[in-house]
């Protein structure tokens, strides 16, 4: 089981959003870290086949991203998750299940299972427009998991979740990542710190770090901030400030 990305490039007018990114991702949770505008979402959209790269290829176990069987093993939660406000939570999942090719009986069973898993049991008959931001996000996570995806792509999945929900989400992703490829993008380091087997850092469309959390040796957040030029000076200043305080 492997997601293979080969020299993927995307350019918008005069800005290179993703610059020759090559990756091989096996099963496990892969955390994609980067500041806003670093190219995370563009990379993820190309991995999901909804954005055509200028060059490069994406495939999963030899299946090209443009193929239907690739989409059959894909689960995706976009950053700006869209929904049908007048649908109930159950209707929405049943619709997404039909798009993913689940049989009606399986779809109903799986939808109930996921609603329970994301803590939305009892809310399935309510219209989505009555849901809170966190509930909508959890519904988004549920729809991404409907087809038991071998490749799960989550773009900023923890946005809007409260601390308790974050913990539950992390456990869920960790469990899915044992047998599947999970790519999770965020700019919040703590989201990936505990569950990611591999950390990918992206800046200005380029992959600037690819390694395990152990390779970071110590505080991931500090390491993450160190990778960004614009932040490096701030950190050094902070360090200097701390040392001065100690001296005093």
């Amino acid at each position: 089981m492997e997601l293979y990305i080969d020299r993927l490039t995307k350019q918008y007018k005069n800005k290179i959003a993703v610059d020759r990114v090559s990756l091989r991702l096996g099963s496990g949770v892969h955390g994609l870290l980067g500041a806003n505008g670093a190219g995370k979402t563009t990379l993820m959209r190309m991995i999901c086949g909804i954005l055509k790269p200028d060059s490069g290829t994406v495939s999963f176990d030899g299946m090209d991203v443009s193929r239907e069987d690739y989409r059959a093993i894909l689960g995706y939660l976009p950053q700006d998750f869209g929904y049908y406000p007048d649908f109930t939570g159950m209707d929405f999942l049943m619709y997404m299940a039909s798009l993913k090719g689940l049989r009606k009986g399986d779809a109903r069973y799986r939808s109930r299972e996921l609603l329970s898993l994301v803590g939305l049991e009892g809310q399935e008959k309510n219209r989505i427009k009555t849901y809170s931001g966190g509930m909508k996000q959890r519904l988004g996570i549920a729809q991404a998991l409907l087809n038991r995806p071998k490749l799960l792509v989550l773009d900023e999945p923890t946005a809007g979740l409260d601390p308790k929900e974050r913990v539950r989400f992390r456990d869920l992703i960790e469990q899915i990542g044992r047998e599947n490829v999970v790519l999770l993008s965020t700019h919040i380091v703590s989201d990936v710190e505990q569950i990611a087997d591999r950390i990918l850092m992206i800046r200005d469309g380029r992959l600037i770090f690819d390694g395990s959390a152990d390779e970071v040796r110590g505080n991931l957040e500090e390491f993450y901030l160190e990778q960004f030029d614009e932040r490096r000076d701030d950190i050094e200043k902070k360090r200097a400030g701390k040392e001065e305080t100690h001296h005093v």
Binding site: C48, G49, D80, P85, L99, K100
Partner: peptide, 13 residues
């Protein structure tokens, strides 16, 4: 409604 991306990356989208 931004549901296009969900539909178009699904198997029968």
């Amino acid at each position: 409604g931004k549901t296009d991306q969900l539909i178009l990356c699904s198997r029968f989208g």
